[in-house]
Design a protein around this nucleic acid. Sequence first.
DNA 1: CCAAAAGTGTTAGTGATACACCCATGT
DNA 2: ACATGGGTGTATCACTAACACTTTTGG
Lengths: 232, 232
Amino acid sequence: MPMQPIRDMERQKMLVAVDAVVFTVIKGKLSILLIQRKNEPFKGKYAFPGGFVRNEESLEDAAARELYEETGVKDIFLKRFTAYGDVDRDPRGRIITVVFLALIDAEKFHLEAKTDAMAAEWVPLNKATPLAFDHEEILREVLEELRYEIQITNIAAQLLPEKFTLSELQQVYEIVLGMKVDKRNFRKRIKALDILHPLRETRMEGAHRPAQLYTFKDKHYKPLKERIQVFV
Amino acid sequence: MPMQPIRDMERQKMLVAVDAVVFTVIKGKLSILLIQRKNEPFKGKYAFPGGFVRNEESLEDAAARELYEETGVKDIFLKRFTAYGDVDRDPRGRIITVVFLALIDAEKFHLEAKTDAMAAEWVPLNKATPLAFDHEEILREVLEELRYEIQITNIAAQLLPEKFTLSELQQVYEIVLGMKVDKRNFRKRIKALDILHPLRETRMEGAHRPAQLYTFKDKHYKPLKERIQVFV
DNA sequence: CCAAAAGTGTTAGTGATACACCCATGT
DNA sequence: ACATGGGTGTATCACTAACACTTTTGG
């Protein structure tokens, strides 16, 4: 028997979108990349960069493309999270959105508005309300996921520059997890994980002892063998 | 300015489906609920119960409905996982599927084939290949998620009957995690979590000391305050 | 009285936490 | 010489892991 055509193709009236929740640390604050909406609904409100998936592109490709078109940010690691599809989550119609999570070094990208449609900004978490659609709920869940991910994967490598000091790395963990960590214990744990290479360089900056620079042995996203235990 | 219509509504040619990956323990083996496909593509192969989302139902409702229609299983907790949407994952066309994870007590459901279309079976994990579509990949990822979930939530409550012994509970953990645990240590940890009520009943079964029965204080899915640390 | 699973505590080892001072530099 | 952040070790505590015998029942 040959394949049957899919009857529902005609009847289903819904669209598939992707959204990218991109975090960075700016001036010691966890911030997210948001677009100020120019049109109704939710005109003037912040929303995640995102848009509709094209027929011939994967979800990942769609997320990367929309992110680039709307913010200029490209070539970053996007971790697929989950889908949101409540019937009324978008007043314009039924839209299922697949959410992606990313962490990037804000220094690497300048958010120049290339087109009128672009109004991308880094917004500190505590100022990121109200958000359009169900994006506040999404943000809460993605943030929880981020706090988990940063402890069991090397995703933090995405957020740091190529070379960084242990203090900078520690700050990232403290900011993302929202808690202070003891310096000596943090260093012991990170060293035990064996994911960093010390470089032959130091960084001098200000009137104090220069800091040893490190780099991630592997910058590609991968699960760690042991959890980074940063809880107080 | 009024809301603009969504141009893409006409152009996007893809369908949204849901799939349910339902686990249980049967005869000491972790098993999943599968449907034997009656039609091409993948005729004769096993696949997860699932189907297309209707316009007016939520993703959760769709998963529950499809599960019921195809297997008779209903009223179970479905945990939304993630979405799969590779362009070629279904040869019939572009289909994005949102996957749900569930754990149930197989005793509660009899998989009587109510209609011709129903050929649902419990299949032990080690016999659950090959699977149709990208379901093997999905299964791998969902299983990993399950092993995580069972340690940080009370989702195991879904898999056990109302009343159970500590040995039965331990077996569930051992089977899902695929590792043996020391009896005394397991009991210490579970008791420390304070999620069980000892009942005033025991169960006599076979020629040995009767076992104390327990029940979950809260059978609804919820994150635990502390991780159930069952690693050897 | 034998078989079979239920039930129960202690010890040793490992890992987490708490904590304070010296170092290298620029001004 | 002082201010600044960088860098390091140890002692205690808590938790994990390993381990064996007694209890209660049915046959």
